[in-house]
Computed example of a mutant assay.
Amino acid sequence: MTTFNEFVVKVHSRCNLACDYCYVYESPGQSWRDQPRVMTDETFAGVCRRIAAHRDGPVSLVFHGGEPLLAGTARIERFATLAREIIGPVRLRLQTNGTLVTAAFAAACARQGIRVAVSLDGGRAANDKHRVRVGGGSSFSRVREGIALLTAQRDVFAGLLCVVDTSNDPVRTYEALVGHRPPSVDFLLPHANWAAPPPRPGTYGDWLVAVFERWYRAPARETRVRLFDDIVTLVLGGSVASENVGLAPVRVAVFETDGSLEQVDALKTAYPGAAALPTDDLDAALRWPAVVARQIGAAALAPECLRCPVRDVCGGGNYVHRYHPARGFRSPSVYCADLLKLVTHIAAAVRADVARLSASPGAR
């Protein structure tokens, strides 16, 4: 068993956007309805004590939601102080939709060492296909303003998260994101499975390959793209900690606003209760079969995955995307063909460059 080292803490359980692909509000699991709107100071302190008792090395705490900024700047800054007092050294991060960012919030994050990632799906038209305000209306302008406020503070803006929509042009989407000068970009596949397949199945591999080519062939490195960097690292024999590729154990635990413990929220897209744990004790949670399955690497993969030539790089893809009504999570990813295409393409590009560099004059 490998201890948890990343803790997603939901400081607010509601959101001011109505994204149609949201894995919290639009999935079969609707447990958010039973949660308090906001986490109290007492609950947060209790969460921190549980983390402190469990930790075995460096840990990260991610302020999350819903939309965490609905909890207010003062509460988030107070929580950051509490976290350090109770847990000790801890890496603090926050994931936001960006619409509620203010100059005061950005300054508070700078004071507290909180790095902030923002969700954005490209330019205005691409973003507003899915990421709209409650009741309708564009979120893009306010997100753009929020990103500008974060970038005005040193070492606060962590990067962008983009959910892939293959009806959007891949290169234009990438270039719109890079226009904000993010330190990193995460491209996320929509949370889908065999019971609820993704829109336009089979198109994601080509879309990601097009983005990879634009990113990889750029004259200078424009940003880190975590998915591509992770695959390159794995192709070259390295290791990464990722939920999306590779075979490293998943070490993430989630605390709801009432302090209860769950697995990652995205599991709620499979069926109601899929993210639930029978205990609020972190050490005991490690022994729960669903958690064990996410820590044992290749032993949890489907037979088809074990025979796959890119098994150790793909790692079966995101665990959430493997769910099949008849086979549970012991099935290939619903994005299997797309992942095979992407990994194979990246591997060929990287190995060709390694061979070229090895054959060049002066190579040792």
Rank of each mutant, 00 (worst) to 15 (best):
T151Y: 05
A152P: 06
R154H: 10
G159D: 02
G159Y: 01
L160K: 02
L160C: 02
L161A: 09
L161G: 05
C162V: 09
V163N: 02
V164G: 03
D165W: 00
T166C: 08
T166H: 03
N168P: 01
D169N: 07
Y174L: 13
Y174A: 09
E175S: 06
A176P: 03
G179V: 06
H180E: 14
R181K: 12
P183R: 08
S184F: 07
S184Q: 14
D186G: 09
D186C: 06
L189N: 01
P190K: 06
A192G: 04
A192R: 11
A195Y: 01
A195M: 04
A195C: 02
A196W: 04
A196H: 13
P199M: 00
R200C: 06
P201D: 07
P201K: 09
G202P: 09
T203V: 08
Y204F: 15
D206A: 15
D206Y: 13
W207C: 07
A210C: 13
A210V: 11
V211Y: 08
V211I: 15
F212Y: 15
F212P: 01
R214P: 10
W215Q: 04
R217F: 15
A218K: 13
A218Q: 14
P219Y: 15
R221G: 10
R224N: 07
V225R: 03
R226P: 08
D230V: 01
I231D: 05
V232R: 09
T233V: 14
T233Q: 14
T233Y: 06
V235S: 05
V235L: 03
V235A: 04
G237T: 14
A241L: 03
S242L: 12
N244D: 09
V245D: 01
V245M: 02
V245I: 00
G246S: 02
L247T: 11
V250M: 07
V250I: 10
R251Y: 00
A253R: 02
A253K: 02
A253W: 01
V254P: 03
G259S: 10
S260D: 11
S260K: 09
L261D: 04
E262W: 02
Q263P: 01
Q263F: 05
V264W: 02
L267N: 08
L267H: 11
T269F: 06
T269V: 12
A270P: 03
Y271L: 13
P272T: 05
P272L: 04
A274E: 04
A276S: 14
A276L: 12
A276H: 13
A276R: 11
P278L: 10
P278I: 10
P278D: 10
D280F: 04
D281R: 10
A284G: 02
A285I: 11
L286Q: 10
L286I: 03
W288A: 15
